[in-house]
Design a protein around this nucleic acid. Structure first.
Length: 570
RNA sequence: GCACCCAUGGUGAAAUGGAUAUCACUACAGUCUUCGGAACUGUCAUUGGGGGUUCGAAUCCCUCUGGGUGCACCA
C-alpha cells in the first residue's frame, strides 16, 4: 500500500510539474490524523518558492480528479501534510487475505533463494549456561525465524567452546575437589562442573602455581593427552546434554553444531599459512595481526600464543572458512554480545586481507546485542556471579504454577502451560526492547505477566481463539459480507503487520514485532471489553468473528517470529 | 590514554528527520462479575547541559557531563 500511494503521489506531482525528489509516504506516528501521510510538500516548498500549503493544495486538488478506489479521502492538514484515508473495503480486503492465506501475509522476498547461516547462543561446555546465553538464544532464534519468513533458507548454527583455558580450569577444579563429577541428574552434574570452573578460577587468580598447572592441562588437552581424556569426554558430554535440554525448552533446533576443538589445528595451520604470506607476523613469540594497518580504528590482536596454541581469533577464521566451504551461504550472520564487537571487527579484517578472491568478509555480518547485567555490575561466570538459564526458567515456571492453581488443568497440562508461558515471559522481556541496549536483570520484570509482556499477548491470542470456538458452537460462521466499523481500529493495526515484519528484518530488530503485537493485542482487548462478539441474531457478528480470527492468527504469527509458543489454553 | 556504544516520566522501554513524544509498570480512581479478569477505562509525570544544521531534531553534526564496552597471549 505504501508503494502504491507513493507511486500515485509521484505521478500526480510529475503531472503538475513538481519533479524534485521521490516523495515518501509513511505511516503517521500518531494515529487519528490519517492512515498514511506524506510530508513531501514541506520538503520541496523552498525550492519552488511557494508555501508548503500551496503545493499540497495543488497536489491534492489534482489527486481528487481521479481518486483510486482504495483511497476514500485525501486532504491537506497542518502546515502542508497530505493525509490519506483508505477505503473501508481495503481493510476488509486485508482481513480477507489473512483469513485465506495467513501463511503469506506480511512475507517478503528479501531473502528469497538465499542461504543464510545464523550462529547464536554459543555456550561453552564446562561453563554454566547463564541468562546472557538466554539472551543470545532469544535474539538469534528470532532473527533466524525472520530470515526464514522473508524467504531465506536458514541454517541455524551453534559454535560451542569445548577447548581452551576455561575447560582446563574446570578440569583442574574437578580433580582438586576430588570427588569426580558429583550429582545424580545431568542437570546437577552440569551445575557441579560450573562450580568447579569457578573454584578453579578463584585458585588460579590467587596462586601463580595453580595458573601454571592449568596452563599445563590446557596444553595437554590441545594435544589430546590420554591423561585427561576420560574426564574431558565425560564433562563435555554432560554439559552438552544439559544444553540440549535447554534448547528444547527454548524452542530452538540447531541444524549444525561447530566445536572449537575442531578448529584448533586448522586454526594454527591457516594462520601459519598466511603468516608466510605476510598477513600475520611474529612478535614476542606470538603470532599477531596488526589490524590498525588497514583500519586505524582497529587494534592488534594475538592469534597464536607464544607456546603455539591458537586463540579464539585463529579458531574463528577456521570456523568461517568451514562455514563457507561446507555450507556456501549467501550471508553468514553471527550474533554475540556487544563486548565482542571490536574483536570480531579485527577478525573480519584479517579475513578480508586473507581471502581476497573468495571475499568471505563481504558476506559476513556481526549482530551485537547488549548484555544482561545486574544492578551492581557485570555478570561474571569466572566468579560464579551468574544466574543460570535453567534456574530462571524453573523460577518462572513456579511463579506461573501459582497463578494457574485453580484452572482445572491436569498435571501434564499444567507443566506444558507453565513452560510455554514461563519461556514466553523471559523471551519477551528480552525481545521487547532494542537489541543494542543492555538489560538490567530484574527477576520480577523478566517474568511479568501483565501489560507489555509475553503472557499478555499469549493470553489475548488464546482468548481470541476461544471466542472463535464459541462462535462455531453458536453456529456463527466467519464472514465478511456485512462489515461493521466497530472492528476498524483492529483492522487498521492488522494492515501494518507487513511493515513491522519488514522493519524487523531489515534492521535486524525483533523488537519491532514485539511492539507491533502488543499494539494489536491492546486494540483487540479494548474492542473485546466494549463489544460482544458472538451474538446470535446480530448480522455483524460474523464479521466480528472473522476479525477475531484474523487477530488470533497474526498474534500467533508475531509470537512465532519471536520464538514464542502459544498454548491452547492458559 | 585511545576507539566504539549509550543517555527519553519515579521505574523499564518505544518513536522511518515530520503534526500535541508513545506504551507498559508503579500509585490513585473507576468498569465489570462476560464470548476466558493474566482484561478494560481514566488521572499524574519526560527527550542530561550548551551550541549548530534543517521549513521541521529525541533522532543529524560539534562540545561538555555522566555511564558502559573493548584495546597482546580468556572466549
Amino acid at each position: 500500500m505504501k508503494e502504491k500511494l507513493e507511486t500515485f503521489l509521484d505521478e500526480t506531482m510529475a503531472n503538475i510539474g513538481y519533479m524534485l525528489g521521490k516523495p515518501e509516504v509513511v505511516y503517521p506516528k500518531e494515529a487519528g490524523h490519517a492512515d498514511y501521510m506524506s510530508s513531501t510538500a514541506l520538503a520541496i516548498a523552498k525550492q519552488y518558492g511557494k508555501t508548503p500549503r500551496e503545493i499540497a493544495e495543488a497536489i491534492v486538488a489534482k489527486m481528487r480528479e481521479q481518486l483510486p478506489p482504495y483511497i476514500s479521502e485525501v486532504e491537506v492538514a497542518g502546515p502542508g501534510f497530505i493525509n490519506f484515508k483508505l477505503a473501508r473495503e481495503y481493510f476488509t480486503g486485508i482481513v480477507d487475505f489473512i483469513t485465506k492465506d495467513a501463511e503469506n501475509y506480511g512475507k517478503s522476498d528479501i531473502f528469497e533463494g538465499k542461504k543464510v547461516i545464523v550462529e547464536y547462543t554459543q555456550p561453552n561446555p564446562f561453563k554454566p549456561f547463564h541468562i546472557g546465553h538466554l539472551m543470545s538464544n532469544a535474539i538469534g532464534e528470532s532473527i533466524a525465524r525472520l530470515v526464514h519468513f522473508h524467504g531465506g533458507d536458514v541454517v541455524r548454527a551453534n559454535y560451542q567452546g569445548d577447548i581452551g583455558p576455561h575447560v582446563a580450569t574446570a578440569i583442574y577444579g574437578i580433580i582438586k575437589r576430588g570427588k569426580g563429577i558429583v550429582g545424580t541428574t545431568t542437570s546437577e552434574k552440569a551445575f557441579y562442573i560450573g562450580e568447579c570452573y569457578v573454584y578453579g578460577n578463584a585458585h588460579c587468580e590467587a596462586d601463580p602455581t595453580v595458573k601454571a598447572e592449568i596452563e599445563k592441562i590446557n596444553k595437554k588437552l590441545y594435544e589430546g593427552d590420554p591423561e585427561y581424556k576420560t574426564l574431558y569426554d565425560e564433562g563435555r558430554a554432560i554439559t552438552l546434554e544439559a544444553f540440549e535440554a535447554l534448547y528444547s525448552v527454548l524452542g530452538t533446533k540447531f541444524d549444525r553444531y561447530f566445536f572449537e576443538s575442531e578448529f584448533a589445528t586448522k586454526g594454527i595451520a591457516i594462520v601459519r599459512e598466511y603468516e608466510a604470506k605476510g598477513i600475520f607476523e611474529e612478535s614476542e613469540g606470538a603470532v599477531i595481526f596488526r589490524a590498525e594497518r588497514y583500519n586505524p580504528k582497529l587494534h592488534t590482536r594475538v592469534f597464536l600464543t607464544n607456546n603455539g596454541l591458537p586463540l579464539y581469533d585463529a579458531k574463528e577464521i577456521a570456523l568461517t572458512v568451514a562455514k563457507f566451504t561446507e555450507i556456501h551461504p549467501e550471508l553468514s550472520i553471527v550474533t554475540t554480545a556487544v563486548e565482542q564487537k571490536d574483536y570480531m571487527a579485527v577478525v573480519t579484517e584479517a579475513i578480508r586481507q586473507m581471502f581476497t578472491v573468495e571475499k568471505y568478509a563481504d558476506h559476513m555480518e556481526h549482530i551485537t546485542h547488549g548484555m544482561m547485567r545486574f544492578a551492581t555490575g557485570k555478570m561474571s561466570s569466572r566468579r560464579g556471579n551468574v544466574i543460570t538459564g535453567e534456574s530462571l526458567i524453573r523460577d518462572a515456571k513456579e511463579a506461573i504454577l501459582d497463578v494457574i492453581v485453580d484452572r482445572g488443568f491436569n498435571d501434564a497440562e499444567k507443566k506444558e502451560v507453565a513452560e510455554a508461558v514461563g519461556v514466553a515471559a523471559i523471551k519477551y522481556s528480552i525481545l521487547r526492547s532494542g537489541i543494542g541496549t543492555d538489560i538490567i536483570f530484574d527477576f520480577d520484570k523478566s517474568i511479568s505477566f501483565d501489560g507489555d509482556s509475553g503472557p499478555y499477548i499469549q493470553y489475548t491470542a488464546t482468548r481470541a481463539r476461544a471466542v472463535c470456538r464459541k462462535a462455531t458452537e453458536a453456529g456463527i460462521q466467519a464472514s465478511l459480507d456485512i462489515p461493521t466499523n466497530s472492528t476498524l481500529a483492529i483492522e487498521q493495526v492488522l494492515e501494518r503487520f507487513p511493515l513491522a515484519a519488514e522493519r524487523a528484518i531489515k534492521n535486524r530488530e525483533p523488537h519491532h514485532i514485539a511492539s507491533y503485537i502488543t499494539e494489536l493485542a491492546g486494540a483487540f482487548n479494548s474492542f473485546y471489553a466494549k463489544e460482544q462478539i458472538v451474538v446470535v441474531g446480530d448480522e455483524t457478528s460474523a464479521y466480528k468473528v472473522a476479525v477475531t480470527q484474523a487477530t488470533a492468527t497474526i498474534l500467533e504469527q508475531g509470537l512465532y517470529l519471536l520464538g514464542i509458543k502459544v498454548p491452547e489454553k492458559m
